[in-house]
Design a protein around this nucleic acid. Structure first.
Lengths: 204, 204
DNA sequence: GCACTTGTCTACCAACCGGTAGAGATGCAT
DNA sequence: ATGCATCTCTACCGGTTGGTAGACAAGTGC
């Protein structure tokens, strides 16, 4: 019986749980499946996380930290409004390419109700405030269409998460093609869409 | 033991099932809960729908028909590109106001994989083709920003469904307020967003 | 060498879930 | 009234799930 050791095992379990929670939903994923995928018995998993709910909370926190880290790194050095927006979208699409279940898990977190999502959102909150301030000043400068910045951020969120999670819909609407090239094309389309949506009206 | 009679009972069960599939997910909803909510035993439900999967398929078909009906009615008499887009969005938001679990169910259908979603999409298909043709001619006329019309339709879909289903996220990003007024405000914001995203670039 | 913490395991359980078997009850056509 | 299809029910079953109890092994500090 191998001893992978505490912290390492812990993160492995969390990563696999995010995958399965994202793919099958919270209810649909079973501790048994997660455990065997990690190569361990269910009771070992329950040693690290005493209940399924505790595992979920750990996943929410971990997902928040990962996303905050990726977005934070992508934002470094970006100056213009558009560069920042593009960097964030590119970072998120990159994360989705590497870890397809990640956006699914975030969406599942939203579905599970405000309590669960807050666990995730709390970690992101500084970024959220930065984004709102950034949108607000963009509007003040006349470079972004004037509106409620928080509601705009929400709409941008849904557009990006939707583009990343609604693969079945994409398949039905656009037809075939589940490849990496398809993801890249969706990123370009999402960028164009967001750019168009942010742009202020033409007339002065 | 009351006899509500075949077809009536059937639709009542489907409506309740859509509610619970939407709220709790396919896995999360149980036949027992759905049956008791309708006021009937589980085995009565299983008389109408021999398996849970059969119930799901009936829900998918019913949801498709309902949406096609509502959108079709809303489109009647609309002439301009913008009037049509606005009518569709307004119809969908109206349906969501009356039946909050409906968009959740549609999203769940997408999550369950292409097979399930196709069951729903097949009914909508004529509308999909109409929409793509309409976007294409709008682009030819220079009234809509040029791009892949199918991909644009997909992006519009995700923006609208996201606005309707990500209530927890909205709560976390914008703060409080789950009222009908909030839904109306989201509709206005979504309209503005879509309008901005459709608009062709300013310079000719 | 011995107590103790950490990690992994086997064995088990009560609850729930989807589904089967089959007994009545009701209304309708003949 | 009688045969038959429709509808609703009670009773039950096998499988799965989240979770408990507790044995056992391995490193660590003393």
């Amino acid at each position: 019986m191998p001893r992978t050791g505490g912290e390492r095992r812990r993160t492995t379990i969390i990563e696999e749980a995010i995958r399965q929670f994202g793919r099958d939903g919270y209810k649909g994923a079973s501790l048994e499946h997660i455990a065997t995928a990690v190569g361990v018995r269910k009771q070992t998993l329950l040693y690290y996380f005493p209940t399924k709910d505790a595992l979920l909370e750990a996943c929410l926190a971990a997902a928040g930290e990962r996303l905050a880290r990726d977005i934070g790194a992508a934002l470094a050095g970006m100056e213009t409004y558009w560069d920042k927006a593009e960097a964030v979208i590119h970072a998120v699409f990159g994360l989705a390419a590497e870890w397809p279940e990640f956006p699914m898990f975030v969406r599942e977190a939203g579905r599970l109700g405000p309590e669960a999502f807050d666990r995730f959102a709390a970690v992101i909150d500084p970024l959220r405030e930065r984004a709102i301030g950034f949108l607000q000043s963009g509007m003040d400068d006349g470079e972004i269409r004037k509106q409620d910045p928080a509601l705009l951020l929400f709409t941008l969120y849904t557009a990006v998460v939707g583009a990343l999670t609604e693969a079945s819909v994409l398949n039905a609407v656009v037809g075939g093609d589940e490849s990496r090239a398809s993801l890249k094309r969706r990123e370009i389309e999402t960028l164009a869409f967001v750019r168009a949506a942010l742009r202020p009206p033409a007339q002065e």
